[in-house]
Amino acid sequence: MSALSIKNLHKSYSNGFTALKGIDLEVEEGDFFALLGPNGAGKSTAIGIIASLINKSDGTVSVFGHDLDSDPEAVKSYIGLVPQEFNFNQYEPVEEILVNQAGYQGVPRREAFRRAEIYLKKTGLWDKRRVNARMLSGGMKRRMMIARALVHHPKLLILDEPTAGVDIENRHSMWDFLREINDNGTTIILTTHYLEEAESLCRKIAIINQGEIIENTTMSGLLNRLHCEVFLFDLKEPVSEVPNLGDYAVKLIDECTIEVEVSREQGINPLFTTLSNRGLEVVSMRNKQNRLEQLFVELIQQSGEA
């Protein structure tokens, strides 16, 4: 079943700026879906329309088969939103913010307190439940917004840059938490500027630029399109000059690090054989650039040129 179906969605603002130029998007139930794009591409506008925060100019949006225009309350009851900006009462205690959100969704107060406890514990904020929200750190505020978005058990969770400003340790624990939610059946749409986050979490991806969808495919399908990747190799013994690795293009970064460009046709296994034949022992290797980031930049450039 389609969790989200968008057809010909347009949005023009009163100042004449057109944020969305007729986008189509399908997100299947259970997907972990990445919606990526540069700043100002139209991601937040699209999310704002889906979540009823922005009025659309044209097109249709339906969530789990319910049309946003004819049945907005059903659509809203399916969605949990974690917006980009902090949008809670900074002077309310954390627990109250969650309980109120549950109440707006029609969850009885006693049950709302029970759910608030569950999600505040899961997001590591239970000890802060009586603290005014303005006293939380940036990362804690983000986690609180995730907990708030989950109190009514939404079937579709929309995360607009949920880990912005969150430290690495907490980001990884949030990833685990989001995977768990997705594994339990919640469809997730994620926008992020951390492309390794999208690559690590999402199975499907759409890229939006200048108000248009320029790519909509599976994550693995997109990554397979990479023509070449650049790897950095850390060598055990220093080298004084650029080693000759046959057809592979090589650069010397420093005496113990070389950069090698590997095309899809060449493959990486023959490279290890070549390195071994040259007597070069590799200690570790890594991608020079995140693979998705590399593709993302290419696609955005192509779309801009077109």
Partner: peptide
């Protein structure tokens, strides 16, 4: 107004509250 200013009016707008 403070609900609008701090944007927590969005908590209501995204909820199925008539």
């Amino acid at each position: 107004f403070s609900c609008k200013y701090q944007r927590h009016i969005e908590e209501l707008l995204i909820s199925p509250v008539p």
